[in-house]
Design a protein around this nucleic acid. Sequence first.
DNA 1: GCTAAAAGTAAAGCAAGCTTGACATCAATG
DNA 2: CATTGATGTCAAGCTTGCTTTACTTTTAGC
Lengths: 68, 68
Amino acid sequence: MKNRLKVLRAERDWTQADLADRLSVSRQTINAIEKGKFDPSLPLAFKAARLFNLRIEDIFQDDVDEPS
Amino acid sequence: MKNRLKVLRAERDWTQADLADRLSVSRQTINAIEKGKFDPSLPLAFKAARLFNLRIEDIFQDDVDEPS
DNA sequence: GCTAAAAGTAAAGCAAGCTTGACATCAATG
DNA sequence: CATTGATGTCAAGCTTGCTTTACTTTTAGC
């Protein structure tokens, strides 16, 4: 799962901590998601989409590979 | 988090087990999600969106309430 | 080169997503 | 009413998302 959080942050000049605050999660969570350590929950993805006024698919992209 | 899985299934005449198979999860997982027991993971939401050829937001709707 | 803010990383622990297995309920149909 | 397929539900266990605390590394300005 790739994501554009870093770019979206940069466009707004927000730090990881800034974004974490706005999404009500810890800074480490943002860092881990940006670094691909794990995927956000669906509710968190919705929060991000609302925050950036974008669709979930415009922020997070599925790495369409795993053939189950 | 509400969702339209039951309706989307009905339109295709699929059982919970059918959908579970197509999403490579257990039948109980589909049941639990439909009944609102828990939210799907983001990867699972993406899989469902691909399967139904819809956007995640067209399948799952955030219950926008919790003021953090 | 120092300093300070930002980003990265790691460990331990709790909560949520998901599994298997098993059983109960609810149609429908013969 | 007995059977069968679909749905609902529970328990135990594993994995993943997220937290806090704490420390290291990077970046940039002075």
